[in-house]
Design a protein around this nucleic acid. Sequence first.
DNA 1: TATGTTGTTCAGCACGGGTTCAGGGGGAGC
DNA 2: GCTCCCCCTGAACCCGTGCTGAACAACATA
Lengths: 225, 225
Amino acid sequence: MRALVVEDDPDLNRQLGRALEDAGYAVDAAVDGEDGHFMGDTEPYDVVVLDLGLPKMDGVTVLERWRQAGRDFPVLILTARDRWSEKVAGFDAGADDYLTKPFHTEELLARMRALTRRAAGHTTATIECGGLSIDTRGARVFIDGAPVKVTSHEFRMLSYLAHHQDRVISRTELVEHIYDQDFDRDSNTIEVFVGRLRKKIGTDRIETVRGLGYRLVDPVARPVS
Amino acid sequence: MRALVVEDDPDLNRQLGRALEDAGYAVDAAVDGEDGHFMGDTEPYDVVVLDLGLPKMDGVTVLERWRQAGRDFPVLILTARDRWSEKVAGFDAGADDYLTKPFHTEELLARMRALTRRAAGHTTATIECGGLSIDTRGARVFIDGAPVKVTSHEFRMLSYLAHHQDRVISRTELVEHIYDQDFDRDSNTIEVFVGRLRKKIGTDRIETVRGLGYRLVDPVARPVS
DNA sequence: TATGTTGTTCAGCACGGGTTCAGGGGGAGC
DNA sequence: GCTCCCCCTGAACCCGTGCTGAACAACATA
């Protein structure tokens, strides 16, 4: 279940991303209208959260272009409480639901569940990859059903890799999603964590792509490039 | 057994939520008619407590729309003492029972039991987890049938953990559900309670997840993913 | 008022786990 | 082949987190 969050406030963007990830979504994020539009235009998302007040390209415009191009994923728009006309314009442009800021995360999740329910069953809180399953709510990892003991940082990292499996994740991207503040660039902590994870879940599950980063894969059914 | 509480007074909402949780329900809450209607429309509740005087959308309207959409969960409406006509309108709209404010929590619970009894067999007021059973109505705890003496705060905490077993519950989440007001962040009261509980129900039932929180598990049959 | 029960605070301790470092391996490019 | 650079690995360090026993405070009970 892939979700796209287009929101220019970095704090809110981050908060939304984390909440959705914890709920089992694989989340991509954009902070302006142009990037958001491009990502929605090129990747097959299952649901999109779209702020209407965006730099570079207005949210309504983004939505209009998607719909004109035939993108029919469900879109939930976010509006400021006093922007009534925006909301109407958003619906006219093809939004499926709306929420006014500020809002409770639970409500957003409930609405997203409603949007995605018919589309693809139900969102699970566990991510599967090969025999590897990651219980995002219980913070546990199983490999072929057997529990694997991982530390909290290891779990965060594995969870992020799993949310974006088959994609190459750069070291800096991992760092940004594991730590709140950026930290020492010249540290090999990430490599150490990768090493420890490999020792626990199997060497061939985390591929290293030289010069770019790491990729979580299903070791048995190696997909095409 | 899932319950929805739609009540705009935050204090009463919180109080109801807690009472229902202690009675063994999994509770969702909404504070206005729109949200309440949406949640009832999208989630499969077993019983709903609906205040009639609500912002954004009137309670009667909410109920009418649910019934028109085919939602047939039992609904108990709350009315102010002097709003006779509202009550009638509520019944016309499809309410199953009513209660005038103010009311005693016990009476509400009794009526809800009556509502849910026929609908789904019996309301389970005890939560099971391994050999551990928690009588939410009598505030008692048994381990393999033998009673265990716990204090009220210990019970609240264990009850909350049990409602969300196999999930990691953070310290702050525990605090928010045990205490009315937020209190000293830098206090180790939670740890002390965990320690005392462990001493009473067994060390291996409450796992600690370093950096994240605690998790109530069944120690013998470690569940699959 | 005496007494027991329950909630909270405190200090000390143990250990898990994150970080760092040094050294070795092995692609990729020439 | 050689060299460079990136990556891996083992071990050690050390700080923070969480656990524990006990004392203290708040409260109810008799």
